[in-house]
Amino acid sequence: MFKRLMMVALLVIAPLSAATAADQTNPYKLMDEAAQKTFDRLKNEQPQIRANPDYLRTIVDQELLPYVQVKYAGALVLGQYYKSATPAQREAYFAAFREYLKQAYGQALAMYHGQTYQIAPEQPLGDKTIVPIRVTIIDPNGRPPVRLDFQWRKNSQTGNWQAYDMIAEGVSMITTKQNEWGTLLRTKGIDGLTAQLKSISQQKITLEEKK
């Protein structure tokens, strides 16, 4: 169930391209415009997507990853294993993690069937560096609404905000991946996880038929 919630949630996290980005210092504006741009692209490019579902990787690479804190999220997933990894191991892992996100997020976007969304009203940021933004996803086919909290983090150097995690039903996506990959990290280390991520990233994206 959580895996499905995570995939549905990713439908609204794909941010804007650099040329049309919203105010990078306001995570609420980023979330709002990102959702609108993403849904528009999914709707307008269905012919290309249906002809070649792996085209979704391109959308992810162009529109999402430049505005997601990939390395920060990847380091959180590694936890204690990050500090013990060599620079070469980290570089290989982050490259594999990025390719994994292209496949995983692309597969999530393949679930698009006309969903709509509501974003919580903007709250004062103050001096906060981590801000959760509640998004409610509404399914046109009558499924119950899904309420999610996207975690946005302020870059201490640039002042810009980027998304790095999502919490559904009190469970963090980062925590879920830590639990899912924990045994592999304990037995085969970061190299074993890197190899698995490379394998997963090679899987073809498949479209979910409308139910």
Rank of each mutant, 00 (worst) to 15 (best):
M1W: 04
M1C: 00
R4A: 01
L5W: 01
L5H: 06
L5C: 07
L5Y: 14
L5D: 14
M6V: 10
M7H: 09
M7R: 03
V8L: 04
A9F: 08
L11A: 01
L11V: 05
L11K: 00
V12Y: 10
V12F: 14
I13E: 15
I13F: 00
I13L: 04
I13P: 04
A14L: 10
L16V: 04
S17C: 07
S17W: 01
A18F: 01
A19C: 00
T20N: 08
A22L: 06
A22T: 08
A22W: 08
D23Q: 15
Q24N: 11
N26F: 01
N26S: 06
P27R: 00
Y28T: 10
Y28D: 12
Y28L: 05
Y28V: 08
K29P: 08
L30F: 05
M31C: 07
D32K: 10
D32T: 13
E33T: 14
E33I: 00
E33G: 10
A34C: 13
A34K: 05
Q36D: 03
Q36T: 11
Q36A: 04
Q36H: 04
K37D: 06
K37H: 15
T38S: 04
T38N: 06
F39H: 04
R41E: 08
R41K: 15
L42S: 07
L42T: 14
Q46D: 15
Q46S: 05
Q46A: 12
P47E: 14
P47H: 03
P47T: 04
P47S: 04
Q48D: 03
Q48W: 10
I49M: 04
R50V: 11
R50T: 02
A51Y: 13
N52S: 10
P53C: 01
D54C: 09
D54L: 00
Y55G: 08
Y55I: 00
Y55F: 02
Y55E: 15
L56R: 01
R57P: 10
R57K: 07
R57W: 06
T58D: 11
V60L: 06
D61G: 08
D61P: 03
D61M: 14
Q62R: 05
Q62D: 06
E63Q: 05
L64H: 03
L64S: 06
P66Q: 05
Y67A: 04
Y67M: 14
Y67E: 02
Y67R: 05
V68H: 02
V68R: 15
V68A: 04
Q69H: 02
Q69C: 03
V70K: 07
K71A: 07
Y72F: 09
Y72T: 07
Y72M: 14
A73L: 08
G74V: 04
G74R: 07
G74E: 05
A75K: 05
A75D: 01
A75Y: 13
L76F: 01
L78K: 07
L78A: 06
G79S: 07
Y82W: 01
K83W: 06
K83D: 07
S84R: 02
A85D: 01
P87M: 01
A88Q: 00
R90F: 12
R90H: 05
R90D: 06
E91A: 02
E91G: 04
A92R: 10
A92F: 14
Y93N: 02
F94V: 01
F94S: 01
A95L: 08
A95C: 03
A95Y: 03
A95N: 08
A95W: 12
A96K: 00
A96V: 12
F97R: 06
R98C: 08
E99S: 08
E99D: 11
E99F: 07
Y100Q: 00
Y100P: 09
L101P: 06
L101V: 08
L101C: 01
K102Q: 05
A104M: 15
Y105N: 01
G106D: 00
G106V: 11
G106M: 03
Q107N: 15
Q107K: 09
Q107F: 07
A108I: 12
A108M: 15
A108D: 11
A110N: 05
A110Y: 04
Y112P: 09
Y112S: 10
H113R: 13
G114Q: 04
Q115A: 04
Q115C: 11
Q115N: 01
T116P: 10
T116Y: 14
T116H: 05
T116K: 07
Y117S: 13
Y117G: 03
Q118D: 00
Q118A: 14
Q118E: 03
Q118F: 08
I119W: 10
A120Q: 03
A120V: 05
E122V: 11
E122K: 08
E122M: 00
Q123D: 09
Q123K: 11
Q123I: 15
P124I: 13
L125K: 15
G126F: 15
G126Q: 15
K128C: 07
T129D: 06
T129H: 06
T129I: 10
I130W: 06
I130F: 03
V131K: 09
V131M: 12
P132T: 12
R134V: 01
R134P: 14
V135W: 06
T136I: 01
I137K: 15
I137M: 15
I137G: 08
I137S: 10
I138F: 10
I138G: 13
D139A: 08
P140V: 11
N141T: 07
G142D: 03
R143L: 13
R143V: 06
R143F: 00
R143S: 11
P145Q: 09
P145D: 03
P145S: 09
V146F: 14
R147C: 05
R147A: 10
D149T: 09
D149S: 07
F150N: 01
Q151S: 06
Q151L: 02
W152H: 01
R153M: 10
K154P: 14
S156C: 15
S156W: 11
Q157K: 06
N160I: 01
N160C: 03
Q162G: 13
Q162D: 02
Q162L: 10
A163E: 13
Y164S: 08
D165I: 03
I167Q: 00
E169A: 06
E169I: 09
G170L: 15
S172K: 04
M173S: 10
I174C: 06
I174V: 01
T175M: 15
K177C: 13
K177W: 13
E180Q: 10
E180L: 08
G182P: 09
G182H: 15
T183C: 11
R186M: 13
K188E: 12
K188S: 12
K188R: 11
G189M: 11
I190R: 12
I190K: 02
D191F: 11
D191K: 05
G192P: 05
L193S: 10
T194C: 03
A195I: 12
L197V: 02
L197E: 11
K198F: 13
K198Q: 00
I200V: 08
S201V: 08
Q203G: 10
Q203D: 08
Q203T: 12
K204M: 13
K204S: 12
I205Q: 14
T206G: 07
T206L: 04
T206E: 04
L207A: 12
L207R: 06
L207K: 06
E209F: 14
E209W: 12
K210P: 11
K210M: 04
K210F: 15
K211F: 00
